[in-house]
Write a protein that binds this DNA or RNA. Sequence first.
DNA 1: GTCTATATATTGATAGAC
DNA 2: GTCTATCAATATATAGAC
Lengths: 195, 195
Amino acid sequence: MASETRDRIVDSARQLFWEQGFESTTLAQIAERSEAMPGSIYYFFKTKDAILHAVIDHYDEQLGAWLIDPVFGRTDDPVERIFGVIDTYRSFLVETHFTLGCPVGGLALELGGESADARAKVSKIFDDLTSAMESCAREIAARTSTAGPSPEALAALCLTVIEGGIVQARALQSIEPFDRSVTCLRDYVDRLLAD
Amino acid sequence: MASETRDRIVDSARQLFWEQGFESTTLAQIAERSEAMPGSIYYFFKTKDAILHAVIDHYDEQLGAWLIDPVFGRTDDPVERIFGVIDTYRSFLVETHFTLGCPVGGLALELGGESADARAKVSKIFDDLTSAMESCAREIAARTSTAGPSPEALAALCLTVIEGGIVQARALQSIEPFDRSVTCLRDYVDRLLAD
DNA sequence: GTCTATATATTGATAGAC
DNA sequence: GTCTATCAATATATAGAC
């Protein structure tokens, strides 16, 4: 099951899906980047869809270590944690000049109708990320006196700011709409904490 | 230039791009839905990309009449206008059971790297929609005493809530994250106006 | 497990009759 | 302007030697 070649194939596919999307990526491209021949790819994966599942599983397993743990390990403050996660996505956008958005969000939109089980896995990843944001939102709620939004709602807004900011940033090829949205979210959180 | 057949082709392509994305849509599907033979399609359009451009141009021309005018004609209140536009997108999501998100946002993500001129057109559509939201945000700012976010920032957040809410709703096949984000946005606007 | 070679289907696109 | 027929390229996927 585990294999160095297999890992290379999944990692190459993951990069390509991130850069171009699932549909636009061909097996020839995966073969080229992973330096594995088509025959080798089909030794490990029965179909192209099977590669997609492996990529999504990889995100599912690595989301914590890759995105949440570094940020949450850096600080205990719930506000800093939220904006630390958001800033991680911002860095991807800026460093890749808006070619790399959210790997999971991109797949979510692309898998809209078809492949119900792949979409279900993507759904779970969103749930996990929402849970992490929710723990921060709960701490924030505990610090405020008047009634603010539910932790679930604030957590949803945080993911919304990430995904919506990415869509606009990629469309406009500018980080400005992303930053503007984040500025509002911070203002909102500040106002909540001022109560 | 204008032709009933051509209109049918563009409209069918528009629907299919909305439902499945640009890459996943084949000319055979466009031919089937528009009831035009491949030969006819290529009489009007030199390439598949030319169809894409026609679709984007259609959105560019019809965005006002299709999305903004109905909402802005219904009320003068800037807050109601903002949430009226947002609710239009919500209706698409719910009525189509999360298969139809934002036609422009979907293309924006898909055209990330390639076809720079198509992406530029998409960019212009976002600018137009942002302008409409910005006019509302400016009125809201005029009603508040203390310093709130800039109208540009609040407008960006409105689009972010739409696009980010759609990504999550389609991923989770649930309107909940969309509604939760909108609830927060409304709470934020209420707090701005309470100042 | 990895390679070469190739099958099969579908893609975007074209030619030319009418 | 619309049709039929089809091309050439590319896609996913397979067979079988090593």
